[in-house]
Simulated assay, not measured.
Amino acid sequence: MPANTNSNYKRPFPLFSAHAETIFPALFRKIKNLPAARTERITTSDDDFLDLDWRTQDSNQLVIIQHGLEGSSDRPYVLGMARIFYQHGYDVLCWSFRGCSGEMNLRPVFYHSGATSDLHEVVSHAIKKGYSDIRLVGFSLGGNLTLKYLGETQRPAEIKSAVAISAPLDLAAGADNLHTTRAKIYERRFLKTLRNKIRQKALYMPEAIDTSWLRKVKSVRDFDEYYTAPLHGYRDANDYYSQCSSKSFLKGIQVPTLILNAQNDPFLTKESLDHQLTEDLPEVHMETTRHGGHVGFMLKDTSGYYWSERRALEFCKCF
């Protein structure tokens, strides 16, 4: 569909910059009026595990939510989206990628931007439980993952719509952008936890994980070069980015899908804001906003909802 700049979002005072819009919600947002989750652990086809957090109310409609890089199922942005869908009648499934639920996974692999087989296992598990109306919502890395999943092949008919928020459609450009002055504060935070996970996994499987490469990791691109790519069967970082960037899969998407990215997102580059990407795609809607930051879109009203949450629900209700 022809893309547009959505002018409905107005950032509230005092969020006067992209960094404030990004950091304030991540550090200070608290989600109230959401039931506690029931956690289910499922075994994957390769004998690993995924932890799924369920909030159910006997609905036949389900939203499945994917978090971002080094996130988890209990991050405020995930729970905020879970709350608005739950309070409007949906069952909610938030899940943590491998190694992100507080316990290291069992296989000599992690999660990554293209690991759609895990998302497919989660969706298939939900369908076996009887859900016939499923919506997908992905944030950042989880947004790229959602788009790639939908565009790879014909997906289950039970998936009716999807929303990707703050999604890096071009992984190479996104990784290089994180190493710039504008975004280096976020890269340092990611690298700290990623390095810790490599050290932790190496304690359990030293034959598969070589920690000596960590001294060469100075950027997210370096991490992908020395760890993400070789551990998951890619030739190098460029091969990984090329094969997993969701912009290459948009043309295959056959369900109504909204991409919602902010023009001032410190994580994203022009490649993820290019309106021409969806111009000839009947099912893919791209909306960019002037403000919003990365996984921000804060509102200042009594509901507690964020603008991106309202927009995601509104979009899904249309299909």
Rank of each mutant, 00 (worst) to 15 (best):
F110Q: 09
G138H: 04
E309C: 07
H88Y: 05
D118V: 10
D236E: 08
C318A: 15
F249I: 09
L258K: 02
G233H: 04
L79V: 11
E225H: 10
R188C: 10
L62E: 05
P76T: 06
L191Y: 08
L178N: 15
D91I: 09
M81C: 07
G99A: 04
S96T: 09
L171T: 09
K128L: 13
L231G: 00
G102F: 08
Y306V: 09
C244W: 08
A18F: 07
L141V: 03
E40N: 07
L119W: 00
A173E: 11
Y86M: 00
G99F: 05
L277T: 07
R55V: 04
I159N: 00
Y86W: 02
S303H: 02
P256G: 00
T146P: 01
A172L: 06
T56R: 11
G233R: 01
R155K: 15
S245K: 09
Y90E: 11
A175Y: 03
P168N: 06
A208G: 00
S96E: 12
T257C: 01
L34E: 08
G102D: 10
R310C: 00
L52T: 02
R75K: 05
R38N: 14
Y234K: 07
V284F: 15
G252F: 02
S59R: 05
S248A: 11
P35S: 06
A126F: 00
K317Q: 15
L214E: 13
L27Y: 11
G296T: 06
H232W: 09
L147H: 02
R182V: 12
P108Y: 14
R195D: 14
L299C: 12
N4W: 03
S73F: 13
S117N: 14
N8Q: 13
S166M: 07
K10S: 14
Y226P: 04
G304A: 00
D301M: 01
A312Q: 13
P266Y: 08
T146D: 05
G99M: 01
K218D: 14
Q254G: 08
H275D: 14
S212Y: 05
S272K: 08
N264V: 03
R182N: 09
K197Q: 11
R290H: 15
D118S: 10
I134W: 03
T5N: 01
P266V: 06
D170V: 05
G142I: 06
S17R: 11
Y204P: 01
S101P: 02
E187D: 10
V220W: 09
A167E: 10
S245F: 03
